[in-house]
Write a protein that binds this DNA or RNA. Structure first.
Lengths: 304, 304
DNA sequence: TACTATAATCGAAAATACTAATTAAGGCTT
DNA sequence: AAGCCTTAATTAGTATTTTCGATTATAGTA
């Protein structure tokens, strides 16, 4: 059996991939440029294949190089997790935890979550990153985040998940608009272009349309908002109606407005909230505990 | 960030876990006992926790030690895969491939499979291990096998799978027993204790009973067989009837007997055959190709 | 008590990793 | 086109780490 590549050299390769420059990568690794350079050459020799195409001025990762980077990232992430796990002596609710959350959940979950975690698990250092589903999944893969709170269903790309609970959608509109409507609201009672949604980057848009069975796209206004708060303001300005998740309403997003929340059409007019983690993790116990913890903060907990 | 443990030291730990003896483990690693000993101590220091409890005469892995071993195994397997992948230059159908297969599939698949692989991919070195589902899954986890052919459904324990196709069950009995039966056979026409099955270690037993909707357990003879060939012989000796998969029949398991194969009851009286692999693998392309390859050898291919 | 087997320790030797300085080449500015 | 800047590779010397063989310490066994 040939000798295994060293983690050190693999980390050099990752740094080089990230910085695309030997000097900066070397700096990031706290070694000299020559060390990194020879480390990479070493690796190429051990793996018996070319990872980067060099020219005297610059270089380019080969296809094989890119694939090795991918796999190396997973190996290093696993090793870091092992180190962390051992060092924390199996204390599952202590130390840093990097959590990613989508923008249509974060503002309404993070407050109560951090507050309650502080009470129950004061040694847990929660680090939260808010971004789109797609970006969060990328960061999870790269080992830059440990766990995500997403709205399901979504292509988990090989990751695993716990289903935490459901979050009902409400059809929100100005009081004056709601007068002659019956619940659940039939959308054909609404004028064309009267429903406002978020930009399509937000998974909430698709989930709401599907869950609330809004088949008639002529009701949807082509102008999109960038946040739930914008949607609320637009509805309050009597521009039209919109879908708002119960979580946001519970956290008072409609306070100080003249908006009402009506039951929309749809067998199960709600989205599912899930906790997503790498299949290779060794922090399942932590995530399980966290899942139970978050579930109890949702409008309709499903877990446990 | 603390320094990562070295792969070498992790492999020392694995060897020690396997051999439960410093000298033998060191021999297996081709290093001296002192090297291995200090490697382990080094690892404990880096991880900041005790992995083995020592007494001057012997030692014992701690709970943490066992968990670290588990995770280390995964890391080393990934790294070996990376090495193998790079060294084979992405040639997906070359080199060694360790395949596990259950005993109710292997004898009827391996022959045609190796023969045809030899023609299409002569550089692929297929290494086959026959064992129960449970044992095979264990070997897959430990990185001692690369891929499994199993009958589904089964608890994949976090592994991933391709569904290859279906393999119908037939109710096999002596010609003289079949005379006054109509297909699909109603089991209440059969005497008590007249259906013979395999030992319960074989997943075929459960799959056949479920797929063929054999609800009445009084029909099942408590005496169990250890192989399909035994079942066939018992049926040929007019002891009773049994379920035999189509794959086995196609490969001539009934040749030279006076047995007939009847259609059993059941909406879908068949088992599913799947190819199972680790979620962390980087040989998906190989497995995908192999899956397509195996599928075409099944009675009812589903893939592609 | 001598003998065997075990794992830890120690010091020297060997292998490896690292650095600073230098080289070589391409692109940019003047 | 000359000079300068940036880039990655190379070189040679140094520092660090790894490894080994020998030894020690301990416990069980004949």
């Amino acid at each position: 059996m040939s000798k295994l590549p060293s983690l050190k050299n693999l980390s050099y390769l990752l740094a080089l991939h990230q910085h695309q420059n030997f000097n900066r990568a070397a700096q990031a690794c706290n070694v000299s440029q020559s060390t990194l350079s020879s480390g990479i050459q070493n690796l190429e020799e051990q793996l018996g294949c070319q990872l980067i195409e060099r020219d005297h001025k610059s270089f380019l990762f080969t296809g094989m190089g890119e694939e090795v980077v991918e796999q190396a990232r997973r190996i290093l992430t696993s090793t870091e997790e092992l180190l962390y796990f051992a060092q924390s002596q199996g204390k599952i609710m202590e130390g840093p935890l990097r959590l990613g959350c989508i923008p249509t959940i974060a503002p309404f979950l993070v407050g109560p979550l951090t507050k309650q975690l502080q009470v129950d698990y004061p040694k847990l250092q929660l680090n939260i990153r808010e971004d789109t589903t797609e970006n969060l999944l990328h960061l999870l893969r790269n080992g830059e985040l440990d766990v995500l709170v997403l709205a399901l269903p979504v292509d988990l790309q090989g990751n695993q998940s716990y289903v935490l609970g459901r979050d009902p959608f409400k059809l929100v509109m100005h009081q004056s608009m709601a007068d002659n409507l019956h619940e659940p609201v039939q959308y054909n009672q609404l004028p064309d272009n009267s429903i406002f949604l978020l930009e399509k980057e937000h998974c909430l848009t698709g989930h709401a349309v599907a869950a609330c069975e809004l088949a008639d796209s002529t009701k949807i206004n082509p102008f999109t908002a960038t946040s739930l708060h914008s949607l609320v303001q637009m509805a309050d300005a009597r521009l039209g109606a919109t879908f708002i998740p119960q979580m946001a309403i519970d956290r008072g997003i409609l306070n100080g407005t003249d908006l009402v929340a009506l039951q929309p059409t749809g067998q199960q007019a709600s989205r599912e909230i899930g906790l997503v983690y790498r299949p290779t993790t060794n922090r399942r116990q932590t995530f399980r505990r966290l899942a139970e913890f978050i579930a109890q903060l949702l409008p309709e907990p499903l877990l446990k």
